[in-house]
Design a protein around this nucleic acid. Structure first.
Lengths: 297, 297
DNA sequence: CCGTTAATGATTCATTTGCATTATTTTTGC
DNA sequence: GCAAAAATAATGCAAATGAATCATTAACGG
């Protein structure tokens, strides 16, 4: 207990120490300290030499940094970083235990791994940048059409329903599939069409992107590949992984993107929250909502 | 892209493979496979010998397991596990960098943290057990009704659409809100009603659970609390966190539960995959699908 | 009972590892 | 401009690592 506490203390000090070195230490060492700050976890998995290679410094620089940080040597330094990584893993063991020897445990663990991979892909810096780039345009668009059918209908519906609560440029998705195309034919260059489809790509959504192109509307494609038929000629393409058990690709990444887009828009809009509030008031007034039972505490 | 995709695939398959080995492999190897399942991250940080020491097996067993898993040797195995660990860490630094000094960066990082927390809650052993308990009953149910309105309509739609592809007891959700109650009045004790609603709880879904109770159907409530009005008298309650930015609760956890339920059902059903196949064939026949452009490689 | 085979363990060997030592370059004070 | 000092790079070495090979043990059929 005492020992782990002490180690945690050193862990907490690690980043500040590195930052300090990046300012006070000699050039090469300082540069390497910065590199370590940006590639923290490489330390956990690399030897002195391989780390030196990756950072383009001499192997000795690695050893000297370790000592400069107060460690006996590189081994001690690395052990500390590994400890930090392990801390994030706690709980995985318990789940593994729970899953083992259970019918269908494979499926669940596959889903968990897939979900994590999908989510991390969406949360990559590039993807976030891409999503952020879309936000300002969506905010000023005259109309936003969300188009998705079959299993992707849920995403389209979520987008336009929640979007419609906060913004007045979201067009609500029609119940009858055919009307999507009717609706789109009235779109124009100031409108955005958010098209959502994954393999197998549905004809209706492909057709929707074609119409969008014809009327000059910009297409934001949420799909599984740049080679997707709905990515052709699109204004923006958000390519997503759909990992899942063999028989069931996951649309989870798509929902996360939808939520990120909406959150990004709301964060930049002054009225969004007020709009939601009045939207909910309206529904409550007409009896659409009901308060839950009072919760103790 | 190709390479990272491939690695991702192998990563996702890693745990199932270990589970398989823990059942089919010779005793020592099987025992070690189980140990690895429970001490997943030790692999990332240990050498053959140190891992063997920790697991109390011969060093050779470690090498054998690696090969049995399809790797060239221990190095390849460890690299894969490290990749999995990195996936969880990756970007903590890069992402922080990307988010910093960016408009709305807070929102994105909040979403990321929230999403992770929500997903982890669903993946907790207790929650997985709960979900798994529902599966057998759902498989033999006469009819399964998925009920959700407003933002939760997307979840209900996803459940019944994808469920309907693989199983014939899923009832497709009606477009008009009113018809939900009409439909439900025809339900009976052999039916399951999956009710999805979060605060503010929608009157229609609450009413649906009441009708379900009246006709003797069992209710599986996907909601945010045991105190939820749709949890009262429910057969099973799946309480979910909906963490998100203040103004926008996330329904991501609900989608994950939906996917887990479906995956769990499919894994236990012999015809499910065949049903999906024939379903897709049917749609393709009528021109609902279109092939994507050929992908290079 | 034996002999065959699969499973496990021990030994060996070329590499790689971390670290100390030595050599070289760069910086600094005058 | 140059010597002293500091910083950086190169070298050497004992200990470790990963993987191949060989030896032992257990399981099973005839």
């Amino acid at each position: 207990m005492g020992r782990s506490n002490m180690q945690q203390k050193t862990l907490i000090k690690l980043r500040p120490n590195l930052t300090r070195l990046s300012q006070t230490a000699p050039p090469t060492l300082a540069a390497f300290a910065i590199w370590v700050l940006d590639h923290y976890d490489e330390v956990a998995f690399s030897s002195i030499r391989s780390l030196a290679d990756k950072a383009n410094v001499n192997a000795n620089t690695v050893t000297r940094l370790s000592k400069e940080l107060g460690y006996d040597g590189y081994d001690a330094f690395r052990a500390d970083v590994q400890l930090a990584l392990r801390a994030r893993t706690i709980g995985y063991a318990a789940r593994a235990e729970a899953l083992r020897n259970r019918d269908g445990g494979d499926v669940y663990s596959e889903m968990i791994a897939a979900n994590r991979a999908n989510a991390e892909a969406v949360f990559s810096p590039e993807m976030l940048r891409l999503i952020e780039q879309c936000v300002p345009t969506l905010l000023v668009a005259r109309r936003i059409y969300a188009v998705g059918v079959r299993s992707c209908y849920s995403i389209a519906h979520y987008l336009s329903y929640v979007g419609g609560m906060a913004f007045n440029n979201f067009v609500s998705v029609p119940a009858q599939p055919g009307s999507i195309l009717d609706q789109l034919s009235r779109a124009g260059p100031e409108d955005i069409v958010i098209a959502i489809s994954f393999e197998h790509y549905s004809t209706e959504v492909i057709r929707a992107t074609q119409i969008a192109r014809d009327v000059g509307a910009r297409v934001l494609s949420i799909t599984d590949s740049h080679a997707s038929p709905i990515a052709a000629g699109a204004w923006r393409v958000v390519p997503l992984p759909m990992e899942g058990p063999q028989f069931m690709p996951s649309i989870n990444a798509a929902l996360i993107v939808a939520e990120l887009l909406l959150a990004g828009m709301m964060a930049r809009s002054a009225d969004a929250v007020a709009n939601i509030k009045s939207f909910e008031d309206r529904i409550e007034k007409f009896g659409g909502y009901q308060r839950g039972a009072p919760v103790s505490g």
